[in-house]
Design a protein around this nucleic acid. Sequence first.
DNA 1: GAGACGATAGTGTGATCACAAAATGAAATC
DNA 2: GATTTCATTTTGTGATCACACTATCGTCTC
Lengths: 242, 242
Amino acid sequence: MKSSGINSGQEDGSGEPNLNEQAYRRLRDALIGGVFLPGAKLSIRKVATALGTSAMPARTALRRLAAEQALDILPSGSAVVPRLSREAFGKLAAIRAELEPLAVRMAADNLASLDFVRLTALSDRQLRALADSDPETVLAADRDFLFTIYAACGSSILLQFIGSLWLRRSPLFWDARWMIMSRAGLPHRHAAMIDLLRAGNGAGAAATLREEIETATALLLEQYPFRGPQEGDGLATLAQRP
Amino acid sequence: MKSSGINSGQEDGSGEPNLNEQAYRRLRDALIGGVFLPGAKLSIRKVATALGTSAMPARTALRRLAAEQALDILPSGSAVVPRLSREAFGKLAAIRAELEPLAVRMAADNLASLDFVRLTALSDRQLRALADSDPETVLAADRDFLFTIYAACGSSILLQFIGSLWLRRSPLFWDARWMIMSRAGLPHRHAAMIDLLRAGNGAGAAATLREEIETATALLLEQYPFRGPQEGDGLATLAQRP
DNA sequence: GAGACGATAGTGTGATCACAAAATGAAATC
DNA sequence: GATTTCATTTTGTGATCACACTATCGTCTC
């Protein structure tokens, strides 16, 4: 991926991530890692304290995540981790089912042999984690696998949109991780996608992914207790994370 | 559209838009209206002066627009109006061709008779503006027509994504407005879409829209002088707009 | 004319503050 | 127990400032 000289204001002049960017990344990673439960309120001052910064970087990061749809804003102005209704989750999945296969199709001609080495390793890693009942690694390997493909699509906007969708539903997915773990057939599809992509069949790989998204969505729509109980806000855990 | 009690931090307690939101809307509308040329730099202090606020609302609005992909951020941290390459424009259109028909399909069952009255009026308005050689109204009627449909899709995220795509390519579209005006067949498709939607054929309307997006994209990819000359930054015009 | 250098102006970032609004908890009332 | 009221605390917003970095411009040298 070539750098276009355009970034998101993420580094100071020396190339180090500035405090805005560090706060954003830590919050983003915390969202992905299930630190916050759906419905958790994130106060600027409390996040700043947990991150060890003044209020400004926390505020900027929270507002950025809100603009990216990862967080909602209450009428009071407070940021809150989205609590997805069954309907909202279904619609989010419908958007994913359009955008992620598009990214696969766009990426198909750009994947190099090093990418395939990496994809194979990630697929294997997921298999092992599944056998080891390690949901965190299963979810991470899944994410890394798909984003390795998407990274080759050549569209930073498309990557951003997909990232937003993943962020938005991360808390729910983390909450549902044991349900997802019990689902059969997951690793075979990644291996199948690798084979299709190797064979130059981007459309086939895209269709396989679409089916995977739709299958996972149907499972969750059927089994996940939308609007389950919520406790705690996760800020103590945020302060402890690097 | 029902309010979910969740907003984007856009109003103070009394329901008035706060300064952040006012600055955001004015900048957004200025982007849509072609006030800024692609490549124009938007300094926080200059935008604040033009808007008549302190730096904070301007800064917040610029960062929000950047997070939404409407603006890019240079390595220096300055916000800049995106200058789309031919490739980037083509990819942006590919994303539109996935998301906007999805919105039409999702909206099809939710459109009410008042919506059709409005859609018909907007289609007629666009016809008149086309006859009157009034590009601003043509583009505005096109936008209002489509967003009237999309508003019924039931997904705030999808609306946000589509809005982001429209914002990002607005400066270019404004620049290309006379080229777009010369294109034949535009109003017939909106009338056809209305008929299809009335008949409950959301998939047909979505396919018609997809064809429209792809036709317009092909025209611009062929004829628009990507990386044309750029002058001025538009900040004086921003200060004058309400 | 091209490039390097230095001075100056402009710029974004992060910190901090004040204020008004929202949230919270306790006490009183029904 | 449920609701209302009130006092207090918390909270987001907007303003302002200082600082370090970036951009610009003018001058000098080759």
